[in-house]
Design a binder for these strands. Structure first.
Lengths: 189, 189
DNA sequence: GTCTATATCTCGATAGAC
DNA sequence: GTCTATCGAGATATAGAC
């Protein structure tokens, strides 16, 4: 049920998704919805976002751990997302961005979860950048920049139905991080 | 009425905004809504997005025309948006991004307008980059990158309620464009 | 715990007088 | 053109049997 909700929220947003749709898609019994989520739709939303946010964070980790440096990891991540978008008819974008924008000024509980998720991704990104030798004061702004570009590129790609924003942005982000890495003194690698 | 609609769509999205709210806020007569927009909410949405999208495009033009080069224009634009966000309790972000994500896979008429708006901004950006001497094949991907980063930074800033994503990203985008400008042969300026 | 039925509300859209 | 009243659909949430 959480997975079905997360998937629908990502595609059509929070307001655009009906509870019946979630229980229908998830094959879960309608009667048990308010047993597990006494807080109703909002509580389900919070739980679904937390779950998909953490899953996405682990995906980031996986890509960075498998790559030789953060720059190639980013290039791969952008390219991977472009593939995922194209293969899903431009539906599988960021699991929280749509809800984040919808609720930034309306439903604070949901906005807060989205903020927590974004910050967990930022912390993960900054950690990998730091571990590659980039100094702490630079790593966090660089993570902010990288995630910003990624989120915006997904927004553009979904809207104009082309992977071009993701691929073009991915190249430049990777090159920016690459330049930062080249400023790292040799001993620290 | 169009302005009231555009404002509400930007803050709380398309699905999250009721028609009554729009006519209420706009002080317009309810009876005339379906006279001017026989297509109902969707037609009003299309018109509102087109209008605010074009207004925003002219704002971009204004900033670029007033700045000495595209790099400083971008820095100013990010900084201006950060101010606008902070001054509006993080409500006045991008006028189309929220609706774009909501409708990318649900309501194609709205998605298409958002795509048109984004593309008009991209064309404007690419034109200014070209006019500054950056070759055509580079200007468009650079515009894609710049707009992507901007859109994502707004998303992050609104969600975590901090201007940090915008300021950090603005600096880096400006420096990337600055580097591209330095590759321009002197004669072409 | 889960089901069915339903209460209550709000939405978008329409009808018809003026 | 604009107003008032209202329709019908679909939403969230609840009640009460099992």
């Amino acid at each position: 049920m959480l997975d079905a909700g997360a998937d629908l929220f990502r595609r059509q947003g929070y307001e655009g998704t009906a509870l019946k749709e979630i229980v229908g898609e998830g094959g879960a019994p309608w009667g048990s919805l308010y047993h597990f989520f006494p807080g109703g739709k909002q509580e389900l939303g919070v739980a679904a976002l937390r779950r998909s946010g953490e899953r996405y964070r682990r995906l980031i980790e996986l890509v960075f751990e498998g790559a030789e440096d953060p720059s190639t990891a980013l290039r791969q991540f952008f390219s991977l997302s472009a593939q995922a978008l194209e293969g899903s008819d431009y539906a599988d974008g960021c699991p929280v961005a749509t809800v984040a924008l919808e609720t930034a000024n309306t439903t604070d509980a949901l906005r807060q979860v989205c903020a927590e998720v974004f910050e967990s991704w930022l912390a993960t990104l900054a950690r990998f950048l730091s571990e590659a030798g980039i100094e702490a004061g630079v790593a966090y702004p660089l993570a902010l920049f990288g995630l910003s570009t990624f989120e915006g590129a997904i927004t553009l790609s979904r809207t104009i139905r082309s992977t071009e924003p993701l691929t073009a942005s991915g190249e430049i982000v990777a090159s920016v991080v690459d330049a930062a890495l080249r400023e790292v003194p040799e001993e620290s690698t």
